[in-house]
């Protein structure tokens, strides 16, 4: 059985607790980003584009049997790593759970600086998109 959103978030917080230095955290994020499957060209279409101020993020959404499935990519490796964490937390989860979930791991890992800082990377927009899609998926609209 798949781990719950809460369990996954706790795991992320634990993983980051072993990385006290920011440089180590970024190195880890970059590694996660590099491991993330690149989004195939046919899914790099405008409707999958989440525009940030500084980097481009693609988010492909699917709804199957009331669950949300996500794929993502970015031209920035750090943003791609952050997207990988979001996918880890949300992709494959029941739409209802995605909708209700409180994203706590950003605050607890200190990665929230990427949400608030300088409208920088489209991450906040990505979270909004995921939530909106989860609502549509839960309502059987997609």
């Amino acid at each position: 059985m798949m781990a719950s959103i809460e369990e996954i978030q706790n795991q992320i917080v634990e993983d980051f607790s072993f990385l006290p230095q920011w440089e180590e955290r970024y190195a880890y994020l970059i590694e996660l980003g590099q491991k993330l499957q690149p989004l195939p060209d046919e899914k790099r279409m405008d409707e999958n584009l989440v525009r940030g101020c500084q980097s481009t993020v693609w988010l492909h959404r699917e709804c199957q049997d009331g669950r949300v499935y996500l794929q993502s990519d970015s031209d920035s490796l750090i943003v791609k790593g952050l997207a990988a964490l979001l996918l880890d937390v949300f992709s494959g989860q029941p739409a209802e759970a995605v909708l209700k979930a409180d994203l706590t791991f950003f605050d607890e890992t200190g990665l929230n600086r990427h949400l608030s800082s300088q409208r920088a990377n489209g991450l906040m927009a990505m979270i909004d998109e995921i939530k909106t899609f989860a609502a549509e998926c839960a309502a059987g609209e997609v």
Binding site: Q21, W22, E23, Q54, S55, S76, L77, I78, A120, N121
Partner: peptide
């Protein structure tokens, strides 16, 4: 190297 990555890593 994406400019955002370079700027973020220089900050470290």
């Amino acid at each position: 190297i994406h400019h955002y990555d370079l700027g973020t890593l220089l900050d470290t």
